[in-house]
Design a protein around this nucleic acid. Structure first.
Length: 490
RNA sequence: GGCCCCAUCGUCUAGCGGCCAAGGACAUCGCCCUCUCACGGCGAAAACCCGGGUUCGAAUCCCGGUGGGGUCACCA
């Protein structure tokens, strides 16, 4: 029975690197019919915030990573927050103290730092092994502790041999014990350190596969030591590489959007981020790239995950995002667009309510042209409201030509007299006039596009005008004619 | 600096000793479609870090170098 976990510390926003390891855990659980546990590692009282916890949960859910056990949903190993499990760590530490695997250290932080300093200066490895306290009589140490003397609890690390493990994506990784110092497991505040709490929890929660960022690879031997001292069988480990920015440095805010919430705010669809991140460095066959979470899960192979750090490519994310937007139905897009349009003030909620059928048709036209959902308000603005503001230079360019000046009024009146305002009728009118004047239709189409939409690019002109409606089109063309006249161009 | 990890087109990757004068995707550049933009189609350019081995044969295995990353806390 496979049990995996994602164990973030709530000290900031959920980072793409973090979601990716959460994602790999989720994928692995789904693939193997296992359980995905969420555990909050908030033993750093200084930096952990309640807000981060909420944000974390929100982000995880947004992208579609529901946890089977964890905060809010509960489970057989509750609670799932380390600050609520303090008793467990104290108990475990007590056990290690009694078995002699750990000892109390009464030296201060300054003293330990000084030791390391000296060792470094003398060219010895700065590996601290407790000074006099490692060998101190446990009874005496207990007495001092009971008397209230501040101390930490440290692991008694073997000075020789190696600690090795078989990483599921890297193969054997091994460390020399001589380089592993007697690390602290309980701080003088009585709270556990990361390496201890994580190992104790992974053991207690019966985690079978620890899949985490490779920045934890050097912590693994320490945790193995804890497991062993606790007499608990080891889980399997898999260390997934970091996500890097374009400069090959660890991805951070410096590189632009780096947190899930920022991507959401920038018009990225959750399924697109999910898909992109899952693909990033996961070693899927390269034949296709658009997959549902279920497909991703069934094809997921942890041992295929690449061992080298992956550079985050925003362009590719955008390409995938655009593909997901194209896959949405016009109805779905209209539902998404309405609040965006209302929010940006291009149309009132009531107006949009009435207008849903038309909005749906608009989305059908624009679907192929959107990269991010936030492009919607910009791309649809001209479908609402009356007259437009025209760019001066472009106005000159479009309407400065004699042919346009001579024929736009005629075009205006023919459009006005059309018995039916349909795409076909409009096209016939425009092409017809151009043909009569023996000119290519594009000589009329481009200025007309600019007049009716205020821009030089849009979806097909005739369908666009049909959706714009006769009244709005005539108003805008009339407005242009007037502007041309008022400056004596007519 | 010590320890650990990693190394195929710009980026993500396929490749797991011969099928590779290295395939796909994104990006780039052409062409086609076309009322513009997009979509779509076709095509181009673009990589096995270097040096030694092992082998009949290496992108694939081994060693060294170089480069990149991580980590060296009473932070996770």
């Amino acid at each position: 029975n496979v049990r995996v976990r994602y164990a973030p510390s709530p000290t900031g926003m959920l980072h793409v690197g973090g979601v990716r390891t959460a994602l790999f855990n989720w994928l692995f659980a789904r693939k193997n019919g296992g359980t995905f546990v969420l555990r909050i590692e908030d033993t750093d009282l200084e930096r952990s915030t309640e807000e981060s916890v909420e944000q974390l949960k929100r982000s995880l859910r947004w992208i579609g990573l529901e946890w089977d056990e964890g905060p809010e949903v509960g489970g057989p190993h509750a609670p799932y927050r380390q600050t609520e499990r303090l008793g467990l760590y104290r108990e475990a530490a007590q056990k290690l103290l009694e078995s002699g695997a750990a000892y109390r250290d009464f030296s201060t932080q300054e003293e330990v730092a000084a030791f390391r300093e000296r060792a470094r200066a003398e060219g010895r490895p700065p590996v601290y092994r407790g000074g006099p306290y490692r060998k101190m009589n446990p009874e005496e140490a207990k007495g001092r502790a009971d008397a209230g003397e501040p101390h930490t609890v440290r692991m008694k690390t073997p000075a020789e041999g190696r600690t090795a493990f078989e990483d599921m994506i890297r193969g054997e990784v091994s460390f020399e014990n001589a380089n592993i110092e007697d690390f602290v497991i309980m701080k003088s505040s009585g709270t556990p350190t990361y390496n201890f709490a994580a190992a104790v929890d992974d053991a207690e929660m019966e985690i079978t596969h620890v899949i985490r960022g490779d920045d934890h690879i050097s912590n693994t031997p320490r945790q193995i030591l804890v497991y062993n001292a606790l007499g608990h069988p080891l889980p399997r480990f898999a260390h997934v590489p970091q996500v890097l920015g374009p400069d090959k440095k660890k991805l951070s805010k410096r590189h632009g959007a780096a947190s899930v919430e920022e991507f959401a705010a920038q018009g990225i669809l959750p399924e697109a981020l999910f898909n992109y991140l899952a693909l990033l460095g996961a070693g899927y066959a390269a034949d296709e790239e658009i997959f549902t979470p279920e497909e991703l899960a069934s094809r997921f192979r942890i041992e295929k995950v690449s061992g080298n750090p992956a550079v985050f490519d925003e362009k590719k994310l955008l390409a995938i995002n655009a593909a997901y937007i194209r896959k949405k139905s016009p109805e779905e897009l209209a539902m998404m667009a309405a609040p965006i349009l209302a929010g940006s003030g291009v149309a009132t909620p009531e107006e949009l309510e009435r207008d849903m059928p038309r909005l749906t048709q608009i989305m059908a036209l624009l679907r192929e042209r959107l990269q991010r959902t936030t492009d919607i308000s910009d791309a649809t603005g001209y479908f609402y409201g009356g007259t437009l503001d025209y760019d001066e230079a472009e106005f000159q360019k479009q309407f400065g030509k004699d042919f346009v000046r001579e024929n736009l009024p005629e075009l205006y009146s023919r459009l006005k007299d059309l018995p039916e305002w349909t795409e076909e009728a409009i096209e016939e009118t425009v092409r017809g006039l151009a043909a009569e004047r023996e000119k290519g239709a594009r000589h009329l189409i481009h200025p007309l596009r600019f007049a009716t939409t205020g821009r030089t690019v849009s979806a097909g002109l005739f369908e666009t005008m049909a959706l714009l409606g006769r009244e709005r089109c005539l108003e805008r063309i009339g407005d242009v004619l007037e502007k041309m006249g008022s400056r004596g161009d007519l």
